[in-house]
Design a protein around this nucleic acid. Structure first.
Lengths: 238, 238
DNA sequence: TTCCTTTAGTGACATATAGACACTAAATGA
DNA sequence: TCATTTAGTGTCTATATGTCACTAAAGGAA
């Protein structure tokens, strides 16, 4: 069914409802920095401007809201992210020039190499360094949404290792720690970081090693349920 | 503008959007137990069944989603709750017989006496003990939503004192502790509970006392920003 | 080979906060 | 006066993080 056909179809219920979109904020870690996926909008409103890889919920295609998020991310990156978590829903009459609108936002994480190939081949999709994105003029309230997502991810970094889904499937503890340090905005004691991960038994040692200048580091992989684990005590906030 | 007029008005944007509702889960603490506010539905679908005090977002009245939540709560209780926090948004094609629908859920807390008078005078609004509500057949997926809200509140009880908004404006530490114990499902060491609250400086001592059998207890009041405070270390989970 | 550099990983003690539990405090009423 | 009830505290233990110096394992230069 094309857009024209949908336009012609009468609504199933009587009351006028706001425009409903889903906006995932997809993060990755690459070259020692945090990046967020942005898309150049091709249509009005805000055509030409960069924004989140979101879109309108299509009730013919999508079974639920998360399906919309996944569909949009696959459209832009060609792969499904291993981490997808609902963030917050923003709805008011000012955020979109077309009037009252609602967006259900998600935080998503993926390893950079998992979608680098596809992203590099298209010009309207780009990884943007997080600090740069925070200064850009983005579509709608997307800059604010990215800020909320970052803050939530910062909190997670204090009591979980779910940020690890922004790394490659196999990673070193140094990489995971540095990612957490970027999020928290402060250096972490190596001893504390490794101890808590070991005690919670959240990682699988692949047995492989990777060398990066000095002694080779062990390569780990996340255990399936590791994103649900909460440490009872937070790391020291900045 | 009445409902008929709204029905007749053409949609401002082209694409067919799901029904959009807001469903607040309002908790209170009364007679040593946790209660949730339920409303008997007067109209189809699910007429006659009890459910959450939610409703459809009215883009003519409500400036944003939170305004809808507040409006619905005031309609049913006559007062605005001192605590209102977005919970989760559920949207799929199965939860409502009318088809694809979305509900933005909120957790709200209020002292029992603040709205007891109004709630007691109407027959279609009722405080229901939380454990009883968990066994009732409620409208739509409202039982599941209450479960999610309760679990979120349980987490909060481990690292904050925001559940305190379910108490009267002035309360004793024993009351606050018992409320937390109900949420966590386990008794808390009195010493631990009092120490952390004192150290974080979250309460105001009113100077007043209240007697309940033995030595009079000091009456406290929540400091304005106390709901934002997070302890660095959680209480022991059950 | 030897030693320097680099990064990975550990040992050991200090510190902070929750758990446990007995104790004291302040009220009432028999 | 003393038993009872509930409020509130002293103090020791247990556990996890902070700190920091140390050892380990690699490569490369002299």
């Amino acid at each position: 069914m094309n857009k024209r056909a949908k336009l012609a179809r009468p609504p199933r219920h009587g009351i006028e409802t706001p425009l409903l979109t889903v906006d995932p904020v997809l993060f990755t870690y690459h070259e020692k920095s945090l990046k967020v996926l942005l898309v150049r909008r091709s249509s009005e409103p805000e055509a030409g401007r960069w924004g989140l890889p979101g879109g309108i919920v299509d009730i013919d295609i999508d079974d639920d809201l998360e399906a919309t998020a996944r569909r949009k991310l696959v459209e832009k990156t060609s792969v499904e992210p291993p981490y997808l978590d609902q963030l917050e829903t923003i709805g008011n009459r000012k955020r979109d020039p077309r009037g009252w609108s609602v967006t259900v936002c998600y935080t998503a994480l993926i390893g950079h190499q998992a979608c680098a190939q596809h992203v590099d081949t298209v010009s309207d999709v780009r990884w943007v360094e997080l600090d740069a994105a925070a200064k850009m003029k983005l579509a709608f309230d997307h800059r604010k949404i990215i800020g909320i997502a970052r803050e939530r991810l910062r909190q997670r970094a204090l009591y979980s290792i779910s940020p690890g889904y922004a790394l490659a499937e196999e990673f070193t503890l140094a990489e995971l720690q540095h990612l957490h340090e970027l999020l928290i905005g402060k250096s972490i004691q190596k001893r504390s970081f490794r101890r808590r991960i070991e005690q919670a038994d959240l990682l699988i040692d692949t047995g492989k090693k990777r060398r990066e200048g000095g002694r080779p580091a062990a390569l780990y992989r996340l255990k399936p349920a590791s994103s649900d684990y909460r440490f009872v005590r937070n790391l020291e906030a900045p």
